[in-house]
């Protein structure tokens, strides 16, 4: 299935996010060899050059390492993955609070609401 992208933001940036998510969530575990740019581009139905750009970004952040002719692997540096996970979590948190703020919830009320929700969702 083609991946889904939203309008208004560069596609490569969205690819970076989606790949980060796949790495921290363990779809691509640490040390695992990643599919080639061409394969992944075909899977996501995006331009291979865009996928290449996203990979370059991931390499810069150290999440993905190029091993010569072997292709690319996910880093085995657990700390780095953890950092990334945290960064993504922070984004989620920020998005939650700013969304609630727009609905008229102050910080404290938003916190309470979240607590209540957690109970419901568990069931």
């Amino acid at each position: 299935m083609a991946w889904v992208f939203d309008d208004g933001r560069p596609i490569y940036a969205q690819l970076v996010e989606q790949l980060q998510l796949k790495i921290v969530s363990g779809v691509y575990p640490p040390g695992e060899k990643l599919p080639s740019v061409r394969e992944l581009a075909a899977e996501a139905a995006v331009n291979p050059n865009t996928m290449q750009k996203a990979f370059a970004e991931l390499e810069k952040s150290g999440l993905v390492i190029t091993q010569g002719t072997n292709g690319r692997v996910v880093t085995q540096d657990g700390e780095r993955i953890q950092d990334n996970r945290q960064a993504l979590a922070r984004q989620q948190g920020k998005a939650y609070f700013s969304g609630m703020e727009r609905l008229g919830y102050a910080r404290g009320r938003a916190m309470e609401f979240l607590q209540d929700m957690a109970g419901e969702v568990r069931e």
């Binding site: 309008d7 208004g8 933001r9 560069p10 596609i11 490569y12 865009t50 750009k53």
Partner: peptide, 13 residues
């Protein structure tokens, strides 16, 4: 394409 998206904050479409 990314240039349009970055500069104008919307899809090319």
């Amino acid at each position: 394409v990314d240039n349009v998206r970055e500069k104008h904050g919307k899809s090319v479409d």
